[in-house]
Simulated scan of single mutants.
Amino acid sequence: MILIIKNEATEKSIIELQDYLADNNFFYEIIQGNNTKVMTVIGDTSLLDDNIVRSFDCVDDVKRITPAYKKVSRKYHPEDTIVEVNGIKIGGKENVVLIAGPCSIEGEQSTLYIAENVQKIGAKIFRGGAYKGRTSPYSFQGLKQEGLKDLQKVKTYFNMPVVSEILSIEQIPEFVEKVDIIQVGARNMQNYELLKALGKINKPILLKRGMSATIEELLMAAEYIVNGGNKNVILCERGIRTFEKAFRNTLDLASVPYLKKITHLPIIVDPSHGTGRRELVEPMTLAAIACGADGVMMEVHNNPQCAFSDGAQCIDFEEFAQIVKKSKLIAKAIGRDIY
């Protein structure tokens, strides 16, 4: 870590900073340039809070040489992390996995019907929301425990792993029992108490990027889970909020190859939430695979117009079949395959 010292800093203020660093077992060295004075800090600087360091009167700016996240960084863990779910390996150079299902679980009959069809077409993991965190309190909030029971039936009847979003710490026991991959939604990406709790369980976590989160903030959120002991984390790019109004979100596909470079964790893409538009799901799915995504998660419904939630971004079975067909060609072109 490099600290830029203010030109007008007093000797007393610098000594206060030096004492703070020494008390916390950090070594430091002051370098006087022609116009600038800097202090280099040596040690595990991930333990240093930038805001606390900036609070010292003598500090003008803080520059990190190494990232604040450690355990999710490829620099400290060069090998790819492979997350395995029911024999399906996600990450590294493994096959690309397709995850599909409705936005919301709508009942046993429709859930099983959709699961049967998406599995036949090519999905290996079923997605569906039992608890729905919605922007409006008047929107459909999910079937909750009944929805989780319907997801269990998908596992039983089709031997298909399921992923669903958790909303609170209190729900962890039932999710551990009934869900194969626990999804942390965009709104909960920085719910640090929830992340800490999920770090204590042995269950794959799908961590979605917050709608206004930087890549570093996403990785710091993942660090909470991994630091707690749970190394089975899958990152998910699901679009970020920008000034563009043509789409629900702006799908940041540049984040995929960049994340593959700086972290060992697998990353999947959600083009449904990433665009909010049905006609954009196919091209963004193909682009996601082309740029290295380890999986794609899509919202699929037998009748999107009648879906309980997010019907505008749901594709039907025919559209999903076309995406699967084209995805195999793209995967082959980059030396991979589709499960």
Rank of each mutant, 00 (worst) to 15 (best):
M1D: 03
I2L: 15
I5D: 03
A9T: 04
E11K: 02
E11W: 00
I15E: 15
Y20P: 07
N24M: 03
N25Q: 08
F26K: 14
E29A: 13
I30K: 07
I31K: 15
I31C: 03
I31F: 10
Q32C: 04
N34H: 10
K37N: 04
T45H: 11
T45G: 10
L47Q: 13
L47C: 06
V53Y: 07
R54F: 08
S55V: 04
C58R: 05
V62L: 12
I65L: 15
P67W: 08
A68Y: 11
A68Q: 14
K70R: 12
E79C: 00
E79M: 04
G87A: 12
I90L: 11
N95P: 06
V96R: 10
L98K: 00
S104A: 15
T111Y: 02
T111L: 10
A115Y: 05
K120T: 00
K120N: 14
G128F: 11
Y131I: 09
Y131H: 10
R134F: 05
S139I: 02
F140G: 08
Q141E: 13
L143A: 12
E146W: 00
D150H: 15
D150F: 14
L151P: 13
L151H: 08
L151I: 14
Q152H: 04
V154L: 04
K155Y: 09
K155S: 05
K155A: 04
T156L: 12
Y157A: 07
V162C: 02
V163I: 15
S164Q: 01
S164E: 03
S168M: 10
I169L: 14
I169F: 13
E170A: 14
Q171F: 09
I172N: 10
I172Q: 03
E177P: 03
D180R: 15
Q183H: 05
Q183K: 02
V184H: 06
Q190A: 10
L195V: 02
K196F: 12
K203D: 03
I205H: 05
L207F: 08
K208R: 03
M211P: 01
E216P: 04
E217I: 06
L218C: 09
A221G: 11
E223N: 07
Y224N: 09
R241D: 11
F247D: 02
F247G: 00
L251Q: 01
V256K: 06
P257D: 13
Y258M: 14
K260G: 12
K261E: 15
V269G: 13
G274Q: 02
G274V: 08
E279I: 00
E282M: 04
L286N: 09
A293D: 04
V296W: 12
M297R: 02
N303P: 09
P304V: 13
Q305C: 06
C306D: 15
F308C: 04
F308Y: 14
Q313L: 12
I315D: 05
I315R: 12
D316G: 09
F317T: 03
E318H: 08
E319C: 01
F320V: 04
S327M: 11
S327K: 11
A331N: 06
A331Y: 04
I334S: 02
I334N: 01
